[in-house]
Design a protein around this nucleic acid. Structure first.
Length: 574
RNA sequence: GGGCCUGUAGCCUAGCCUGGAUAGGGCGAUAGUCUCCUAAGCUAUAGAUCGGGGGUUCAAAUCCCCCCAGGUCCGCCA
C-alpha cells in the first residue's frame, strides 16, 4: 500500500471509532480541503439531523474527542469541517522512498487477477485513419495503459469489419477500376494509395446501378460465408490495414489482436445468436426478416425494431457484433469498448440482445464525440478529411522548428529530429486525451499545434529539466533525508507525487483518461515552482542538496510513468 | 416528432457521477522576469449572470422539471 493510502485509511478508521462512540451513524466521505486548511477534511453536514446539533458543534465535538494516530498529527475543527493534518515528515520520507524503490512501477496498483478485454479503433479498413477516428485509438490505448497500471491483465482488440459494404466497395474498386482513373495520393503508404479506389467506387456506385448491384452481390456472398468472396475482400483491404497499423505504431499504439467479423459467420456462432433471439418473446417477423421490438426496453424513436436477420436469411453487422461479444465474454472478466457516439443506439441494442441470450458480461462503453472541421463533418467518401498522417507530420514539423529555434546551436541534426518526433507525437496524443471524450471537438490547426501551457511539451520539458539536473549531479542519492525539504514548494510537490496511485485508481474506475493528463500538468507545474524556489545543484548544504536531488529524481519518475500512461515518450533532453 | 450527449471569461478546458469552505487551469491580452541547475519556464493584473427559467435543500456549476442552442442517432447500412 502506498503512503497516502495508509494515511487516508487511518483517518477513516479514527473517524469510524469516534462516530460509533458518539453513536452517529454515517458513511465517511473524505474531501480534500482548499490549500493550507489541511490534508483531508470531513464535512459534518449530514450528521446534523442525526445528532440534532449544528454542523459546527459536531465538528468541534469530533475534533475534541477524536484520537490522533501514527499518521494524523493535528485535527482542527473549522466551521462545519473537521480538518486533518497528516504527519508531513512521515509522508515526505515514505513517499520519496516508495517512488525511488518502485521506480517504473511507482503508481501501479496491486494485481487484480482479472482480465480486461478492451476493444478500440475497429475502423473500417477502407482508407487511412482521419483525425475524427484518431480519437478512438488514442483514448483506447490510454485506457489500455491505465487498466494495466491499475492491476488488470489487459488484451486490446481491433474488431475488423471484413464483411460490410464499405470493404466490398473497396474490393470492387481495387478489382475493377483502371489505376489511371484513380487520383494519385500524397502519401506513399498503402492505405493512402488504396483509398482512391474506394472513393471512386463509391461515386460509381451512386451513379451506376450495375456497379451498385455487383457490390451488393459481393456483400451477400461474403455474408453467406463464401470463402472466395471473403478472400477477395481480405486481399483488397489488407494493404489498407497495414497502412493503418503503421500510423498507429508511429503514435505508440499497437493492438494485441485483430478479430475479423467473418470469424463468427465461419464458426456458425452467429447462427446460435439468431436461434436464441428468434425464441425471444420480443422477436417479430416482417416480410421474412426478423427483429426484436426494442420499445419494451426503453428505446424510443420513429422505429424501435432492431433487425437481426434479413429476409434473405443473412445476418447483419449488429448480429455478428453480438456473437463477437459472446466470444469476448468467454475470454475475459471485464469488457470495455471505445466507440463513436454514432454507435450509441447499436451498442444499446447489442446490450439488450446480450442480456436476452444471457451473456455473462456486458461491456462498459466509452463513447466519444466527433472531431469536426470548421466547415463541417469529415468524410472519407467525399475526401473531405484531415488524415492522421497529415496531422502527425504537421506536429513533428512544427516541433522540429521549435527545437531548431531553441537548441539549433547545441544539438546535432539527428538529435533534433529525434526530439521533434517525440515532442510532436506527444503534443498530438496529449491534445486529444486531455479533453473528456464526450465533448465534441472542432479541429483547428492553431490549437492542435499549440505547444505552450497545458500541452505535452510543457510536461516533457519539466521531465527533461529534471533529467538535466540529475545528469550534472556530483552526489549519490543514497542515504538522503527528507527532513531538509521544508519549503512550501517542496512539500506541495511531494504531496502531489504522493497522489499518483490514487489518480490512477480513479482514472481507471471512472474510465477518465483525461484526468491523468490534468494531473501530470499539475505535477509539472508544481515542479517548475520548486525549480524556481529551490536551487538544487548550487545548494551548499550537502544534506539539503541530496534531499532535493532525491525529490528531483522522484518527480522524474512520476512524470515518466505518467507520460507512459498517455503513450508519450519522456525525453531526457529537448 | 422522439432518444442520448454537450453548453463554465474573447477562445479552450477542470470540477458534475458521489451537492458543501473564495468555480481551478491554459491560450490570448497587459506588465515584469535569463551575469543563477534548459525562459517550451516563472510572477503579477484584467477577464465568469457556470446557456436561460423554475424547483428540491441549511447549501446547487453539481440533483429534478421546462425551455433555448450545437452534436448524434431513430436503415432488412456499418
Amino acid at each position: 500500500m502506498y503512503p497516502l493510502d495508509e494515511a487516508k485509511k487511518e483517518i477513516v478508521s479514527l473517524l469510524n471509532k469516534i462516530l460509533s462512540k458518539l453513536d452517529y451513524d454515517c458513511k465517511i466521505k473524505l474531501e480534500i480541503p482548499p490549500e493550507s486548511l489541511g490534508d483531508f477534511a470531513f464535512p459534518c453536514f449530514s450528521l446534523a439531523p442525526i445528532a440534532k446539533k449544528s454542523p459546527n458543534d459536531i465538528s468541534n465535538e469530533i475534533a475534541k474527542k477524536i484520537e490522533k494516530g501514527k499518521w494524523v498529527e493535528k485535527i482542527i475543527a473549522n466551521g462545519p469541517y473537521v480538518n486533518f493534518f497528516i504527519n508531513t515528515e512521515k509522508l515526505k520520507n515514505l513517499t520519496i522512498k516508495s517512488i525511488l524503490s518502485n521506480q517504473n512501477n511507482y503508481g501501479n496498483l496491486k494485481n487484480k487477477n482479472k482480465k480486461a478485454l478492451i476493444e478500440h479503433t475497429s475502423a473500417n479498413p477502407n482508407g487511412p485513419l482521419h483525425i475524427g477516428r484518431a480519437r478512438n485509438p488514442i483514448i483506447g490505448d490510454t485506457i489500455v495503459r491505465i487498466f494495466k497500471a491499475a492491476g488488470y491483465d489487459v488484451e486490446s482488440q481491433f474488431y475488423l469489419d471484413d464483411m460490410g459494404k464499405q470493404v466490398a466497395i473497396l474490393a470492387w474498386g481495387v478489382n475493377n477500376l483502371d489505376p489511371k482513373d484513380v487520383p494519385k495520393s500524397k502519401y506513399d503508404k498503402p492505405d493512402h494509395k488504396t483509398v482512391g479506389y474506394y472513393q471512386l467506387a463509391s461515386k460509381l456506385m451512386d451513379e451506376d446501378e450495375k456497379v451498385s448491384k455487383e457490390i451488393g452481390e459481393l456483400v451477400k456472398r461474403s455474408e453467406e460465408g463464401e470463402k472466395k468472396a471473403i478472400d477477395l475482400v481480405h486481399k483488397s483491404y489488407n494493404p489498407v490495414l497495414e497502412g493503418i497499423k503503421e500510423s498507429l505504431i508511429r503514435i505508440n499504439i499497437s493492438v494485441d489482436k485483430y478479430v475479423p467479423e467473418s470469424n463468427f459467420v465461419k464458426d456458425k456462432s452467429v447462427d446460435y445468436v439468431v436461434e436464441k433471439l428468434k425464441k425471444s418473446k420480443y422477436c417479430g417477423k416482417e416480410k421474412g426478416a426478423y427483429y426484436l421490438d426494442m420499445k419494451h426496453f426503453g428505446i424510443q424513436g420513429r422505429n424501435t425494431n432492431f433487425f437481426f436477420i434479413r429476409k434473405d436469411g443473412t445476418t447483419l453487422y449488429a448480429t455478428r457484433d453480438i456473437a463477437y461479444h459472446l466470444w469476448k465474454a468467454k475470454h475475459a472478466d471485464l469488457l470495455v469498448n471505445i466507440l463513436g457516439e454514432d454507435h450509441k443506439l447499436e451498442s444499446k441494442q447489442v446490450e439488450i440482445a446480450l442480456n436476452l441470450v444471457k451473456a455473462k458480461l456486458i461491456p462498459k462503453v466509452i463513447f466519444y464525440s466527433f472531431v469536426s472541421l470548421p466547415d463541417g463533418k469529415m468524410s472519407t467518401r467525399r475526401a473531405r478529411v484531415v488524415y492522421l498522417d497529415e496531422l502527425i507530420d504537421e506536429c513533428v514539423k512544427r516541433a522540429y522548428d521549435e527545437v531548431k529555434k531553441r537548441r539549433g546551436k547545441e544539438l546535432t541534426e539527428k538529435k533534433m529530429n529525434d526530439v521533434a518526433e517525440v515532442i510532436g507525437i506527444g503534443a498530438l496524443r496529449y491534445n486529444i486525451i486531455k479533453v473528456q471524450p464526450e465533448k465534441d471537438i472542432e479541429f483547428r490547426w492553431e490549437e492542435a499545434l499549440n505547444f505552450e501551457g497545458n500541452a505535452s511539451p510543457f510536461i516533457q520539458y519539466s521531465h527533461a529539466r529534471a533529467c538535466s539536473i540529475l545528469s550534472k549531479k556530483q552526489d549519490e542519492i543514497k542515504d538522503f533525508s527528507t527532513t531538509f525539504l521544508n519549503h512550501n514548494s517542496e512539500i506541495d510537490l511531494i504531496k502531489k507525487l504522493a497522489r499518483f496511485p490514487i489518480v490512477i485508481d480513479e482514472a481507471c474506475e471512472g474510465c477518465k483518461p483525461h484526468s491523468i493528463a490534468n494531473y501530470l500538468f499539475d505535477v509539472a507545474s508544481q515542479f517548475n515552482q520548486f525549480y524556481r524556489d529551490c536551487p538544487v545543484l548550487p545548494e551548499k548544504n550537502i544534506k539539503t542538496r541530496i534531499g532535493r536531488l532525491a525529490l528531483v529524481d522522484a518527480t522524474r519518475i512520476v512524470l515518466q510513468n505518467g507520460l507512459d500512461l498517455l503513450g508519450i515518450v519522456a525525453p531526457e533532453e529537448m
